[in-house]
Design a protein around this nucleic acid. Structure first.
Lengths: 220, 220, 220, 220
DNA sequence: AATGAATGAGCCTTCATTCAT
DNA sequence: CATGAATGAAGGCTCATTCAT
């Protein structure tokens, strides 16, 4: 009996996963706007109605896809820098963690799309507030290791947050440009530029007397 | 006869402009997703069919709107730093020009939307390739003054391009985060962070001996 | 110009009327539950989308149909008993007015359906509250003449309301039974029974000493 | 063997009853429109498919539910006036029996819905003709005691049928109005009005010389 | 007997686009 | 040039019913 239930549960999960795969593939093919329940169902080999046995509505599909994407992101970030002693060399850890999340999105541009969907039309909307918060939290989780490393390098909590925000923005900007083909237009490579940014950041933090914090700068 | 043609041409242009104004106002009100031909026509005081006398299709409206947005951007950038002697203080000019484009998008988020629409779903599509190139060129135009200032500060053409690309990416990342509400999540202010980035950049370029750029810049 | 506008307005109205006719005919064929926008459009010789140029949504069609039905009802009631001097013979007027509304629904059973839709599923719902109120008011209008006649026969306002309510209920019950075929089952004729009710009512009111009003029954 | 069959039959019946209970409870909760096979199955603790082992289709559930409703109605009517000697005081019996069926529907509006569903859209449809007849017979059964009492009061069979029909129509009209909220609109109470109707009926029958039968009325 | 996955037909509605006038 | 009626394809979603297990 239990075995039967487990089998069924597994079947159920796998069909759900099948549909998520279909959704992902439709997104890839038609973009997030062009994806429709009909199309996703067709791709999955189902009729539209069947989708609703596995997802409450269309938004729920996005949510599930995004949630799963964020799990993979966190897995990658958690695994990064495993051989590094964070206490001894926080800079190396920062580099590893930053490259982890950046690399994840550089290699998986569709996951970036998905991340932006959370933000669709460049405006927060859709998804229940709770789900939205959960997903935001998971994104934050992926960025926290960098922040911790920044603190380990001697930054105050406040400064670490600021630098981490800048770091994220920089990476997002580069990814976006690369992803849209804009970066090729500039004749540059996003990953190299991100590397450079991280290295300069580390340099700057290691020589704080030479370069005063941004809030104390005198524009002469 | 010619006079008549000219008059007609002028009328034509002004009505087209009227419709673009309407479209812009609808975008502002309803967002880029919420805008419909019907709504734009109504706003312009026309019926839907009339639109097609001036624009081939909906995409063309976006294109025209974006083109016009880029003109305004360029106007803002060109006007910035007009009191500054670029030869004497290239750093001040860089700051002015960078803040100009960044400020334009910070203040006019819908223009940013428009820019991203060209790139919808984070994938180039729609718009003929030629139009796309034209628009790209105009975007480049808006960023060139920064690149020139970087060269005036002593960077090689190659280094200037790299730094300018980074600068643009940084700004875009910050704008995106701010626009989507993510930046508030980080408890930061996009404009302050952008300022800080520009200032640090200038610092870095002014103290090359402490942290020589990867290409070993010579100031003298 | 004005002529043109008028012509267009007339066309517009006639097409709207066409669609209402179609809707009515679909209701007749498939019942109010079976009626769909698709079916109504098809009956009218249009595609579904066209309907929405004339009605905001499905509910609006019901509303328009019902409104028009109530206008016809009121016209019938207003015209009834035109040769009767209401002051001289209020009983005759009562009879005429009551038979008017009853007869209207006896002859036009679909209008009764429509009336019940206002009340759909035997529960008030759908239609905006305001529209609902308007329609209710028009129904009331059709019943007021009876109430006025009852007062002219010497009843207090309160008693007239009570008797009018009973009269309406009686008629509605009979109509419903007739309409559903239940009355034939009872081997009776709805109109005869309604007549009888009205006549007994008049008798009763003319001999009040013999038959005390319901509120005074248990007086001893 | 037979015992086994009987046991199975009993199980079968009880599960069927379970489903009917579920259906009734769903109707109560969501109304007749809002009820779905899925919901009924869930309420009964089954999956949708299981329903079809006990009922041919959805209509059959309505039919069974209505049948059961009519049994309850008959039980109520049969029990009413048990302390009254019908031969000695037929008027009191009439009152008791009439109030019984009216009260049943006044208190159980969903049973009224069910009754009208049999007649959906105010048009007989659905249900096989035979089932329809059976249900009609049971409704008749519930009304017969009133008819018998009317005869006991001295009416001919024909007159008793006519009065009973009127009585039923009056009650149905009042119930409908109350149920749809229309009666409150008239500022009246359905039960009081029904009471008054019954009492007036009794009065009228007790004083036949004062008020000649409806078929002998002189319209002067 | 019961499951529950899946179907298929249907629902209301929106909208870019066309075309006779 | 402009109208505005109409189209047709698509959108998300619901639900009674079937059927292999």
């Amino acid at each position: 009996m239990e075995a039967k239930q487990q089998r069924q549960q597994a079947m159920n999960d796998s069909r759900r996963a099948l549909m998520l795969d279909a959704a992902r593939s439709v997104f890839e093919r038609l973009g997030i706007e062009g994806a429709s329940i009909r199309e996703i169902a067709k791709q999955a080999g189902y009729t539209p109605g069947a989708i609703y046995s596995y997802f409450e509505n269309k938004e729920a599909i996005y949510g599930a896809l995004l949630a799963e994407s964020l799990e993979r992101l966190n897995a990658v970030v958690d695994a990064a820098g495993s051989g590094i002693d964070g206490a001894a060399s926080p800079a190396a850890l920062l580099e590893a963690k930053a490259n982890a999340w950046f690399g994840f999105y550089a290699v998986n541009p569709r996951d970036l799309d998905l991340g932006f969907y959370l933000v669709q039309g460049l405006q927060p909307r859709g998804l229940t507030a709770m789900l939205n918060d959960q997903l935001n939290d998971r994104l934050h989780d992926a960025l926290k290791p960098c922040e911790a490393a920044l603190q380990a390098m001697g930054l105050s909590a406040e400064d670490a947050l600021r630098e981490n925000t800048s770091l994220f923005a920089h990476g997002v900007g580069l990814l976006l440009m690369q992803h849209t083909g804009r970066i090729r237009m500039f004749g540059q490579d996003a990953t190299l530029l991100f590397d450079a940014y991280v290295i300069e950041l580390i340099e700057r933090l290691n020589k704080p007397r030479k370069a005063p914090g941004p809030n104390e700068i005198n524009k002469t």
